[in-house]
Design a protein around this nucleic acid. Sequence first.
DNA 1: AAATCTGCCAACCGCAGAGGA
DNA 2: TTCCTCTGCGGTTGGCAGATT
Length: 250
Amino acid sequence: MRKKVHMENTGGVRKGAWIYEEDKLLKACINKYGEGKWHLVPQRAGLNRCRKICRLRWLNYLSPNIKRESFAEDEIDMILRLHKLLGNRWSLIAARLPGRTSNDVKNYWHTHLLKKVVSKKEEKKEKEKPKETMKVHEVIKPKAITLSTNFGKQPVLASNKDRNVPKDCDDTETARVPNQIANSQPSFGNVPMPCELWSDSLWNMEEEAGSENIGSCSSLHEENFNMEFPNFDDSFWDSSLFYFDSLWDI
DNA sequence: AAATCTGCCAACCGCAGAGGA
DNA sequence: TTCCTCTGCGGTTGGCAGATT
């Protein structure tokens, strides 16, 4: 167990590493009064520590529920999946891992997983780089002729800031889904996808979140469509959009 | 053997949301 | 409505320990 140098009495309250006696006092206090009312804890416990530090010490170290052993394979897998789904919302991720704290998960991510994920992403980018022999075709995007009044307005999705999505996890595509729909046409191979199937794929975010396109619907990507339907007939949109529009009213 | 580097993790800090006065 | 307090969260820092030079 590593020990930190004690920073005594900075501005009245003690800082730095906790000593055994302090831990003992805090434990006794929580056992007596229970968790919560943290503003009362320093006084109740007789500790010269600020309430936030007391809370953190308990939640991250002293709580009897905390697992001390290293992360298991399935826990690591869970972290990776949940991080793709939730971003840096460590408390939510930790809530899915019994005995792990948000600090544990965060630290493990930064020390072990971040590098892995970054190098994997770079590897994938390298692979996806178009080879020089490939020709780039200019394609004309199909446009919807008419849009209903509700189209592109609903549903309202939270912004990245509201969801605390990390900068390196740009999922703005998710928020743009309704507008994106208005500019692209889904397909199964060379066959246009019927709207009822299309909408199913939109609601099935969970599966897509497991891929690189977090919360997006890759089958809606404009590039894919344009390659599949270079001469697509615009008239498809009128009937399909009318059908899809009704789904928002559910 | 000593100096320097790197990994790890506990602790700290600032911010935002909730709730009450 | 505004202000204040409390709580919880995520980002960052600081320092120990082991590895490397």
